[in-house]
Every structure is written in structure tokens, then in C-alpha cells.
Nucleic acid binder design. Structure first.
Ligand SMILES: [Zn+2]
Ligand SMILES: [Zn+2]
Ligand SMILES: [Zn+2]
Ligand SMILES: [Zn+2]
Lengths: 277, 277
DNA sequence: CTCGGTCATGGTTCAAG
DNA sequence: CTTGAACCATGACCGAG
């Protein structure tokens, strides 16, 4: 198992998710199960009485009670299940649907289109640069794309915070405090070009994102190589405290919340960008 | 015999087929027989020893061994037999109960109460330990609490993954794939007690979480101190690489998604726990 | 993109053998 | 016991807005 699959995991059973359903990222099975359970209004009793049955892909059908409890525990919204409609042939519609829309819709940011375009350009440049990374370029394309779909934002923050031109006005206009804060924090690393390249390798070659054990080994080798190079380089030019600070700085690059402006703007287009590279 | 009959014929015994089962068009009887045989793992012996008994509608029950062999011969897929499900008996009750038992949007402790309690105990221990951390204990309480409300989960993952007792059963019962994965990844750090303490300091003393500039300076000092200590310690006992790997390991500790089980369970009670410490 | 419904194919049940 | 006809549940798939 890898983090890549976990990103698309059903929050109820861990199976492959098919998107958000009733407010929660989950699989078709759990979505359908939740709908039927709410519709029928059936109250299950735990098979094992204790109410702590394991709910995973293989065993999710063992105990409907515990599966339903888990649906609720991860936040699936009963109110979002609509009234049963007739067969598809008939066109009977009810007005009750308005009551049952799922509430948590992250507001899409009205960023000025020009600035959006420029940020998108920066993102494309970052992704292109990543694919040219000295180590990462040697990784198979499928593995590359799987990784980039997770870490694209870290590459973006790293490179954008050290962009040669001043892009602060653009960031300002996005109105996202978190993005602004993260970029300014990352700027304080004041990494030079060599350091940036090593850090990029460390972002890209995370063995937890490997699709299988073979890739994991390769990625770990690259990561260790970048660690050694970075250590030698920083030790040569300054103090080795610098080495540790740069590595700690990597923590600041990951988006803390899923619904920041950057994520909202670009998470859905990253896949499309990757196809063109 | 007509084509229609052939098409609808059980490929095992020639009886009327009821659709595809386990990848093969076959009758209810053969389908059921195959499932039971696989589930029980029964190894039949041919009644006639020779293993070439006729399997047709009339004689299919004569020799289970030859019937099962024929199931396999026509390509029935053992992997398509699912895990057994719980009994279907006592379930449907009134719909009033469902709505009555429904916890509102933030679902308080989910079902497995015993394991929840133990995990909560571990969390409390982690938080208490954090407050006793050599550097962090010197920070003002308000700043401490502000930081812990963000990084509590990282402390938890770090300590729980290196817990002295085996807590894997408890983690398993949570049914959260991400939590399980993160703990197993963190375990691979195999940090000793000293390393754990330094890493804890690095988690707790993040200057980005400072409430003001003064605290930021203090936290940075502590963080740098822990970096130095950790560097000296690892360099003394092993290799530079180890130092870098431990720092990179810190990345794995942060919850990637806001709605994993750990977060659902505890994010609302962390504040209350902190009040009591 | 996430609602809805559909239906082939999983599952269990239980009288009959 | 095992069998299999009858019935229930599941989830991959598709259309609508
Ligand atoms: Zn699921
Ligand atoms: Zn149960
Ligand atoms: Zn048959
Ligand atoms: Zn035989």
C-alpha cells in the first residue's frame, strides 16, 4: 500500500474512492450502502454485539451496523440523501430536493483571471522543472505522475517562494492568507539554486509515494543521494545547522488544509497539465 | 439441442443456467456448490477413484470431487468467492430509532469504546510528555496550548509508533487505513529514546506556530538546539545520513487529510484534555 | 462532479433430500 | 449433514442536471 492510494481511499472502508458522496470521500459501495440504509430507515444491530467490527474492503459486509456507524463517524450527511424518485421512465419530480443539498461546498475563489493565468504558468514551469530533475527524470512516467499529483503544491511553494521575479502582487490578489504566509515562510529559507535542486529531489523522491516495492527502493536511493549531496554542499559553504534547517523547512511546504485557494484553483488541472508534459 | 439451450446451459452440469457466476455461466446449484466448497476448503476424494465421473444434471451430486474439478476446469474463479457475511436475522426496526440515534454533524466517540479509551489514554500520555519536554516546558502555557492544538497528532504518531506495548490490534480496530499506514511508516524510523526526544522538540518548537515575534525567537533557539543535539548524537552513533533521514521522517507524521479517523476521534477533545494538564 | 436508478451477480435462508 | 430455489444486498455502471 502507498500514500498515493490512500489519497484516493474511501474514508469508510479504504477501498478506492469514487469521489465525494454525502460530504465524504468514499467508494461506490459505501455511498450506495449509506443511501439505502437511510432510505429504508433500518436500524441495524451489531453482529458481534460489541460494536467494534473491522470495516475494510474485504469485511465491510460482515456487519452493516458497524459499517453504518463508521459512515456517520467520518461525517456522512444523512440530510444529503434525497427522497426516492420513481423509475427513470417517469418524470415525477419533487420540490423537496432543495432541502437536501449537501452543505459543505468550499467557496471557489474569484481570483482575477490574469493572475490565475500567471500562477498557472508558474505551476506548469514547476512541473516541467520537476520532470527534468536530475534524479526524478530517471523514474518511470507512471510513477512520476502519481507522485506529482500529490506533491505538486510543495514543488510550487518551493519554487515560487524563490522565484526570480516579484510575484507578491499576484499572491496578494489571491486573497489567500495561508498561501501568502507559506510563501513568506519559505522565502526565509533563502536557498540558493543548488540547495533548491536538492530539496526538490527530496520532495519528489519520497519512498512512501512508491507504487510498488521496486520503485520504493529506487526512490529511497535517490533520496539518500540527495541527502548526502546536500549535506556535503551545505557543510562546505556554511554551518551544518544549515543542513538541518533546510530539511525542517520542507515541513512548511505542505498544504495544511485541503481547501486553500491554491488547492482549489489547481488540484483539478494538475492531472491535465501532466498529460501534456 | 438448440443454440439457445446451449447458451443458457450450465457449463458444469448442463442444467438451465441462471446467469454468470464466478466468471462462468452456470446453474444455481453449481454456483452454490462452488461457493460452499471454496469456503469450507474441502478436499473431496472421487467416489469412483478414477476421477472421471459424469457430471450432468441427474448425476452431479454423485461425486462432489468430480463436480468441483469440473467447476475449475470450466474456469470458475476461486477469488470471486467473497468473505462470509454476518447473519441477516435481527435487523429492520423503526425509522424513528435511526434518526434518534444519529449523532449530529461532529460525531462524538464512535463505536469501539474500549479501544477509543486506550487510544485516548495514549494521547493524554503524549500530551503530558510533550509538556514535560526539556525545551517545550519552558514555553509559556498559552503558547504551549496553541502549538499542541496543531501538532498533537504528530506527537501522537511519533510516540504511538514507538510505543513499548503492541497496540496494533487497537489500530486495526479503528479501521483507518491511513492511520495504520502512517504508524507503520513511522515505525520504520526505529528511533531510540534520545532521538525520539529530539524529534519531539523539533515538532513542538516550530517557529511558524509562534503567537508573536518574541516566542518565534525562543522557539527557533530551542529548535536549533535540538538540531545540534540530534546531529551530535546521530553522528556519534552512526552516520550523517541517519540525521537527514530522521528529519525527513518528520514529514510523514503530519496527517495528510483532515478527515481521517484519528482526527475525527480526537480533534474536538484535544482542547479539553489540554485544560486538564 | 455528485446526485439518482438499474440489474447482474454477489450473499443468505431453510424446506427437502 | 448437503442441496438448491427463493429471496435479499451489493456495487459497477450509466444518465441527468
Ligand atoms: Zn467504502
Ligand atoms: Zn458490528
Ligand atoms: Zn450446474
Ligand atoms: Zn468422481
Amino acid at each position: 500500500m502507498s500514500l498515493v492510494t490512500l489519497y484516493n481511499a474511501c474514508q469508510v472502508c479504504g477501498d478506492q474512492s469514487s469521489g465525494k458522496h454525502y460530504g465524504v470521500s468514499c467508494c461506490d459501495g459505501c455511498s450506495c450502502f449509506f443511501k439505502r440504509s437511510v432510505r429504508k430507515g433500518s436500524h441495524y444491530a451489531c453482529i458481534a454485539v460489541k460494536g467494534n467490527c473491522v470495516v475494510d474492503k474485504a469485511r465491510r459486509n460482515w456487519c452493516p451496523s458497524c459499517r453504518f456507524q463508521r459512515c456517520l463517524a467520518v461525517g456522512m450527511n444523512i440530510a444529503a440523501v434525497q427522497e426516492e424518485r420513481g423509475p427513470r421512465s417517469q418524470q415525477a419530480q419533487s420540490s423537496q430536493r432543495l432541502l437536501a443539498q449537501t452543505p459543505p461546498a468550499p467557496p471557489s475563489p474569484p481570483a482575477p483571471t490574469v493572475h490565475f493565468q500567471i500562477l498557472a504558468q508558474i505551476l506548469v514551469t514547476c512541473l516541467r522543472q520537476a520532470k527534468l530533475n536530475e534524479q526524478f527524470r530517471l523514474v518511470a512516467r507512471a510513477q512520476q505522475d502519481a507522485i506529482l499529483q500529490v506533491v505538486w503544491s510543495e514543488c510550487f511553494i518551493l519554487r515560487a517562494s524563490h522565484w526570480s521575479l516579484d510575484i507578491s502582487a499576484m499572491i496578494e490578489s489571491c486573497g489567500d492568507m495561508q498561501l501568502k504566509f507559506m510563501l513568506s515562510e519559505a522565502q526565509q529559507l533563502r536557498a540558493d539554486l543548488m540547495e533548491l535542486n536538492f530539496l526538490e529531489t527530496l520532495i519528489l523522491c519520497r519512498k512512501e509515494l512508491a507504487l510498488n516495492a521496486d520503485y520504493a527502493l529506487i526512490l529511497e536511493t535517490y533520496s539518500n543521494g540527495a541527502l548526502c549531496s546536500l549535506a556535503r554542499y551545505t557543510l562546505h559553504r556554511s554551518h551544518w545547522l544549515r543542513f538541518g534547517q533546510l530539511l525542517l523547512g520542507l515541513r512548511q511546504l505542505s498544504l495544511q488544509r485541503y481547501d486553500c485557494a491554491l488547492s482549489c484553483m489547481f488540484r483539478n488541472v494538475v492531472r491535465d497539465i501532466l498529460k501534456t508534459l
